Amino acid sequence: MGEPIINELLSVRDWIRWGASEFQRANLFYGHGTDNAWDEAAQIILWVIKTPWERLNQIVDTRLVTAEKQEILALFQQRIQKRTPVPYLTGTAFFAGLEFKVDSNTLIPRSPIAELIEKGFQPWLIEEPEYVLDLCTGCGCIGIAVASVFPSAQVDISDISTEALAVAEENIAKHQLEGRVTPIESDLFANIPGCYDLIVSNPPYVDAEDMASLPQEYHVEPRLALESGADGLDFTRRLLAEAADHLNDNGVLIVEVGNSAAALEAQFPDVPFTWIEFERGGHGVFLLTREQLVEHAADFKQKLL
């Protein structure tokens, strides 16, 4: 990579083709917004030239100026040499059709819960929630997306990370939701005062074995947002034991546990988890009602002893 490439590659198409080839040779892993080398290269280029994805076909043969080429080359190098995911390179990620600021203090949004939000949590909610809590919010994407779908809802978003909440606050301002979305620094429910109609959480749930085998790209993300003990359920066990006390009578809890779903079911064989299916892919998201949480409270609390 260097000056010869700057001179030889002229168009957007040239740079996408060459970048995709370099990414393939470097054996990169894709899982933070794209699933292939071509889209990964295109995403970087479009960000540099400030062009939306839907216009790619219109500008693919446009020639790039030297300054743009230099910036693209530098980002390609960082993607390859440091295995930095593209959203950290650009500082932006998309979730439920909305754009969010992200940085290395926040997990990159990719939860299948986005599909649930876009559908208004149907058919799982009886009525629109007035009070919503997004636990382990990271950049704030789940809570902010929920607020955009339910314009009358008051949404609290919480995280244990001061740095992540600072990013979330920027995203609240970006989407002009300062009056309806409130950030709270809290370890689980420690600083959460109220009760909610809906609690949604994408908590840390990666078990020790999976953590050790994750591609390098995931190790760029904050460990605090990923790992959760030997079986991936340290946080989720605490959540299950305490959630009922923070839900209104008809309240619903929705939690993503990913690959730790099997371990969760094995630990609580009598709990009637509803496992949600997704049209766009994704797994390991369960739903429990407050009534179910209360019914199995003894099981949940016993696992904390």
Rank of each mutant, 00 (worst) to 15 (best):
G2L: 06
I5W: 06
V12S: 02
G19L: 06
A20K: 06
F23L: 15
R25M: 05
R25K: 15
N27F: 01
F29K: 11
Y30L: 02
Y30T: 07
E40W: 06
Q43P: 00
I45N: 12
I45F: 10
I49N: 06
T51I: 14
W53E: 11
E54F: 12
R55A: 02
R55V: 01
R55C: 00
R55L: 05
L56C: 07
Q58R: 09
I59R: 06
D61E: 15
T62Y: 05
T66F: 05
E68L: 08
Q78R: 15
R79W: 08
T84D: 08
T90K: 07
T90W: 05
G97K: 01
L98C: 02
E99W: 04
E99N: 10
D103A: 07
S104H: 11
S104F: 00
A114I: 02
E115A: 02
I117K: 05
G120Q: 09
E127Y: 07
E130S: 13
T137F: 02
I144T: 05
A145G: 08
V146K: 13
V146L: 15
V149E: 03
Q154T: 14
V155M: 09
I157V: 13
T162Q: 13
L165F: 01
A166Q: 12
A166V: 04
A168Q: 07
E170F: 01
N171M: 09
G179S: 14
T182K: 15
D187T: 07
L188C: 05
P193M: 00
P193I: 00
N202S: 10
P204Q: 10
D210W: 03
M211D: 10
R223T: 12
S228Y: 13
D231N: 11
G232R: 01
R237F: 14
R238I: 06
D249R: 12
N250T: 10
I254N: 03
A262M: 06
A262V: 09
A263P: 01
L264V: 04
L264N: 05
E265K: 14
F268P: 03
F268R: 00
V271K: 02
F273I: 11
G282C: 06
H283C: 02
V285C: 11
F286V: 08
L288H: 13
T289R: 13
E291A: 15
E291H: 13
Q292P: 02
A298H: 07
D299I: 03
